[in-house]
Design a binder for these strands. Structure first.
Lengths: 191, 191
DNA sequence: GTCTATAAGGTGATAGAC
DNA sequence: GTCTATCACCTTATAGAC
């Protein structure tokens, strides 16, 4: 589609995701976003037809990225190395998202669930979790892989009150995630 | 304080926590709660002065329970057995809460944070996490204990789409939590 | 692309009768 | 304890000028 430039659209997205992560989607009004950008609410409506459309646009890249990982993983053997590479790719993807985005997903799950991209995302996460353990994994294994996915993207803000850099937090998250999936043996199902 | 009976106060709490967990605090209006109970909004205000007061009342027991665990733990030696017993007590506490309560905490963190009990809770969770690892634990250890606490109370709804009973989910959560803190060695600081 | 002005509706909360 | 009626406020969203 068209790529008209003036940057306002991108600025709206950046401010929105930041505010959504900080105060939540419901408590962030279009008035607040507009004020932050020093434009009027009506200007926002030129770029996005609804408030929800902002959210939708925000998650497009993430969903595409998840699909890419899933697509790649489907063609790989179900080995531990593959599972760990899934986590590494997911870590990179999460890390490249705008500040606050993964936090919004993780800490506003209830809200997300009622938004359009919420179901799309949840579906991808379920698929990914399923790939990290075998088809008949134990409940504990299931939990282990779910936690692995969470810690990979959430370590950054979960460790917010520790004395460390973002870099170190990301690394710690991935490290623990790799350890978690390594502890979840899968039955080598060749199909 | 007085314990006037008619049960309406308790019914309000029960419906509220359920709706808060399902649709979030902001999207749950007093009108909705009132309709569900077949009373008017005004009736709600006889029992609770504000919407937030409902939330506050909801978390009183949980906070008291957390303080009890913290108080007990402070008098124990910093051994692995103590740390695991903390998790067992926390598991029992979480399990005894009304349906939806722990889910509301976990999946509406952003909202909770802006509510009165949010800070109180977060403070207790920080304390508890600190007790599960040593004072100079690594970032990974810190993460391990945070995840232990989360999985203990969140396994029930994290495993919602698996074929299992609530009982089994609770047990799986506690099992993984115990395993996580066992993997986080603390420097035996006698003080 | 951005503005002013306004519509239409829901929200938390209050007053006062019963 | 619960009701009816109402308030002030804020929200998302739209119409139309520039």
């Amino acid at each position: 589609m068209g790529e008209r430039r003036s940057g306002t659209r991108e600025r709206i997205q950046a401010v929105a995701v930041e505010l959504f992560a900080e105060h939540g989607y419901d408590k962030t009004s279009l008035r607040e976003i507009a004020e932050r950008l020093d434009v009027t609410k009506a200007a926002l409506y030129y770029h996005f037809n609804t408030k929800e459309a902002i959210v939708v646009s925000l998650f497009e890249d993430l969903i595409a990225g998840l699909d890419a990982i899933i697509g790649w993983a489907e063609e790989q053997p179900r080995t531990l190395e593959t599972r760990q590479e899934i986590l590494r790719r997911y870590a990179r993807l999460a890390r490249e998202r705008p500040k606050g985005m993964m936090r919004f997903i993780q800490e506003s799950k209830t809200t997300m669930q009622e938004l359009a991209p919420g179901e799309d995302l949840q579906c991808r996460f379920r698929t990914l979790t399923g790939m990290l353990h075998g088809p008949d994994a134990s409940l504990t294994d299931h939990l282990r892989t779910s936690l692995a996915l969470i810690t990979t993207s959430a370590a950054v803000f979960m460790l917010k009150d520790t004395d460390s850099t973002d870099e170190e937090r990301y690394d710690a998250g991935l490290e623990l995630a790799l350890e978690l999936v390594a502890g979840a043996p899968v039955e080598s199902s060749t199909r």
